[in-house]
Simulated scan of single mutants.
Amino acid sequence: MADWHWEHDPDDLLDGLSPEVLREVGQLAEEIAVRESMVFLDGASFTGRTPGLRNETRGLLMLTYLTDVRGERVVIVQVSWFG
């Protein structure tokens, strides 16, 4: 994984989540960032169409995110925990 990383927006998005949920969010977000780094190999020099808002679910967790290809990052914009 080149320099790809994940972050969340807004800053308070993860406030109030339990440590268990935070671990799940971090693990899933990291996996998404790794996958996106393998899909968008050009990274910062990418010139194609970028994907829009997408969801990824695992168990009781659903993340809504945007892939900022040129910024080599995944931005988590919503966390839903159904536990």
Results as ranks from 00 to 15, higher is better:
residue 2 A to K: 10
residue 4 W to G: 04
residue 6 W to L: 02
residue 6 W to Q: 02
residue 7 E to A: 07
residue 8 H to Q: 12
residue 8 H to C: 11
residue 9 D to Y: 11
residue 10 P to Y: 08
residue 11 D to Q: 11
residue 12 D to Q: 08
residue 12 D to G: 09
residue 13 L to W: 04
residue 14 L to A: 07
residue 15 D to C: 00
residue 18 S to G: 09
residue 18 S to I: 07
residue 20 E to Q: 14
residue 23 R to Y: 07
residue 23 R to Q: 14
residue 24 E to G: 08
residue 29 A to Q: 01
residue 30 E to F: 04
residue 31 E to Q: 14
residue 31 E to N: 11
residue 31 E to D: 12
residue 31 E to S: 10
residue 32 I to W: 02
residue 32 I to R: 04
residue 33 A to L: 05
residue 35 R to V: 06
residue 35 R to F: 11
residue 36 E to A: 12
residue 37 S to E: 11
residue 38 M to Y: 10
residue 38 M to H: 13
residue 38 M to K: 14
residue 40 F to S: 00
residue 42 D to H: 09
residue 43 G to F: 00
residue 43 G to M: 03
residue 44 A to H: 11
residue 44 A to V: 11
residue 44 A to Q: 12
residue 44 A to G: 12
residue 45 S to N: 11
residue 47 T to H: 09
residue 48 G to D: 04
residue 49 R to S: 12
residue 50 T to L: 06
residue 51 P to K: 07
residue 52 G to I: 07
residue 52 G to A: 10
residue 54 R to Y: 04
residue 55 N to K: 14
residue 58 R to L: 11
residue 58 R to H: 12
residue 58 R to W: 10
residue 58 R to S: 14
residue 59 G to S: 11
residue 60 L to H: 14
residue 60 L to F: 09
residue 63 L to A: 03
residue 64 T to R: 15
residue 65 Y to C: 03
residue 65 Y to L: 05
residue 66 L to R: 10
residue 68 D to P: 04
residue 69 V to A: 01
residue 70 R to F: 02
residue 70 R to I: 03
residue 72 E to D: 02
residue 73 R to F: 01
residue 74 V to F: 04
residue 75 V to A: 01
residue 77 V to N: 00
residue 77 V to F: 00
residue 78 Q to F: 00
residue 79 V to G: 02
residue 81 W to Y: 15
residue 82 F to R: 14
residue 83 G to C: 03
